[in-house]
């Protein structure tokens, strides 16, 4: 009788302990999960390296090793520091600071051990880091007629394909508007860096925000 009681007590204690463990771990998991999710909402300024797989898969694939950062000859890429708004340890670049120079041999992709930067990207012109958008039609020198500027167009490594200066006419005024062709634009950010207005009038939106046809490199 007595041993039976203590048996039951032990079992109850054991079940209680299990419930306690599972309970506390679920809470921890929930906190960690929420935090991971939230810190994975990458801001618009941060562009992923060429070949980066879809943003929602990237934070599961990238081990945050920085090998892509190390092999980028232009110091374009950075690893996000804890406390910044990019998921800690993942690579990104800020186009206005240092854009991607679209290396022909794509060393960042070659360096990636996990294929978070997909080896399916073999021609840098197929890269789809984002897409440039004329965000400041009211500040662009060419559109407003302040100057015959075409700095973005000149900066583009694949000008005439990704970006053209289109002749527009409003009333009697004729001007040239930098026009991005999303299916060719890689999102390298050379145009954003090259723009001469104080705040760039043309900016690259990361692919997950631009949401144009992103199917080219599966």
């Amino acid at each position: 009788m007595k041993s039976n009681m203590s048996d039951r007590l032990n079992r109850r204690q054991f079940i209680g302990q299990c419930a306690h463990t599972v309970g506390s771990m679920s809470i921890l998991g929930l906190l960690l999960g929420t935090y991971t999710r939230q810190s994975a909402s990458t801001p618009a300024r941060a562009i992923r390296p060429p070949g980066a797989i879809a943003e929602e898969d990237f934070t599961g694939a990238c081990v945050r090793c920085g090998l892509c950062v190390r092999d980028c000859p232009y110091d374009t890429l950075k690893l996000a520091e804890f406390g910044s708004d990019v998921a800690t340890g993942t690579p990104y670049f800020i186009a206005r600071d240092i854009p991607c120079e679209m290396c022909e041999d794509i060393p960042c992709v070659a360096a990636c051990p996990t294929d978070a930067l997909s080896k399916d990207l073999t021609d840098i012109r197929d890269a789809d880091m984002g897409v440039a958008v004329l965000t400041g039609p009211d500040t662009c020198y060419s559109v407003t007629g302040v100057a015959h500027c075409r700095a973005c167009y000149v900066a583009c490594p694949i000008r005439d394909e990704a970006i053209t200066m289109e002749q527009k006419r409003v009333g009697n005024r004729i001007y040239f508007e930098p026009t991005v062709h999303a299916q060719h634009c890689t999102g390298c950010g050379k145009c954003e860096q090259g723009c001469v207005t104080e705040e760039a009038s043309i900016k690259v939106l990361p692919r997950h925000l631009a949401k144009h046809d992103a199917g080219r490199i599966a």
């Binding site: 960690l32 999960g33 991971t36 999710r37 994975a40 599961g60 081990v63 945050r64 800690t88 340890g89």
Partner: peptide
Amino acid sequence: AITGAIAWEAV
């Protein structure tokens, strides 16, 4: 597995 991100690396 649930979030699809490498969870422990967040902390």
